[in-house]
Design a protein around this nucleic acid. Structure first.
Length: 326
DNA sequence: CCCGGATCCTGCTGGC
DNA sequence: TGCCAGCAGGATCCGG
């Protein structure tokens, strides 16, 4: 499942293979692939055709390609537009030269025909997505609230409008760690739920959440407001470290659903400590890793290293109307 | 505003 | 051998 390291691997591949290319033609093979697009397929293709891809940018699991040469008579003062992609659970972006006939993948959802660069011939960029949770959209950019670059891969201080509410990720130099720690501790919820909340900190999915919790020796149901600042810092460091290591290894791959932009799978999954390791010994203490349902998903943990907290988060009672501010 | 559960979707797997 | 329930889990929507 693509999380931050996998999406970054894709972003890097796109940066090396599609920038400076003009979109010559757009094929949408399945309309729902652009379901987030106002104006549906015609607007998607219309806003994309003829544009040049100028940067590949990522924030958390969101990915976008900046579009040069804005549409004629576009609104003044708008920072620009982007082709935004989210890979969902199973999305892939595959780049292929045109020397050989394009592969008609059964889960091909959209195909962009991209023109040549000074150095290389035209290519085809395929969006393939078996489980169809991913999508593509052409969107307007909005300025970042803090004036810092919108994400990794470009100095432009703007993000796609649908990404504006997504928090910065743990590898973002502009992330305000102190604010993040304070916000996380102010939550009244389970720690893993907070780690998965993309509006709090982005890029972490089910796999790296479990790995980070194991490294920090914390239980997924640990109440966020029972953690010290140091404890929160430790689990955030663990998440940052495990994602950095996965990135170095080329991203995690499961069941061949994820491959990088050139079609080669990552191999970091061999290094996972707990995720998918039910019944196998904890690499630290030897206790048998367990799988438990949590948030309608699976959570994997070591029952000895990651003890269940004594109390669950106290349920927040509805605020009294008299104390509620508008 | 904050929280948490339901929902979307497809294909594979395992039990009977 | 065939059928079907269960499972995988991103983001978003909506009720409380």
């Amino acid at each position: 499942m693509p999380e931050l390291p996998e999406v970054e691997t894709v972003r890097d591949g796109l940066a090396r293979h599609v920038l400076g290319r003009r979109v010559e033609a757009v094929e949408v093979r399945r309309d729902s692939a652009v379901r987030r697009q106002a104006g549906a397929v015609p607007e998607f293709a219309g806003r994309l055709t003829g544009r040049t891809l100028s940067a590949a940018v990522r924030r958390g699991k969101f990915l976008w390609l900046l579009l040069d040469e804005p549409a004629v008579d576009g609104p003044i003062g708008v920072p620009g537009e982007a082709l935004q992609a989210h890979l969902g659970m199973s999305g892939q972006l595959l780049v292929r030269g045109t020397a050989t006939p394009p592969v008609e993948h059964p889960h091909l959802r959209a195909r962009l025909h991209l023109g040549p660069t000074a150095d290389a011939g035209p290519v085809v960029l395929d969006f393939v997505d078996q489980r169809t949770f991913g999508h593509l959209t052409v969107v307007d950019l909005v300025p970042t609230a803090d004036g810092a670059p919108g994400g990794y891969g470009s100095a432009v201080a703007a993000v796609p409008e649908p990404v504006a509410h997504i928090a910065r990720d743990l590898l973002d130099p502009a992330l305000d760690r102190a604010v993040l720690v304070a916000r996380l501790r102010a939550r009244r919820t389970d720690l893993k739920r907070a780690l998965l909340d993309q509006t709090l900190v982005s890029g972490i999915g089910n796999i790296y959440a479990d790995e980070a919790l194991w490294r920090a020796r914390l239980h997924y149901a640990r109440p966020t407001d029972s953690l010290s600042g140091a404890g929160v810092g430790a689990v955030l460091d663990a998440a940052r470290d495990v994602m950095t290591e996965a990135l170095r290894a080329g991203g995690t791959s499961f069941d061949a659903l994820y491959v990088n932009v050139n079609g080669s799978s990552g191999y970091f999954d061999r290094s996972l400590a707990v995720y998918g390791q039910e019944g196998r010994p904890c690499g630290r203490c030897g206790a048998v890793v367990v799988r438990e349902p949590f948030m309608n998903r699976s959570s994997f943990r070591c029952p000895r290293c990651q003890r269940r907290p004594r109390r669950s988060p106290e349920r927040r009672t509805t605020a009294h109307p008299a104390t509620r501010r508008t």
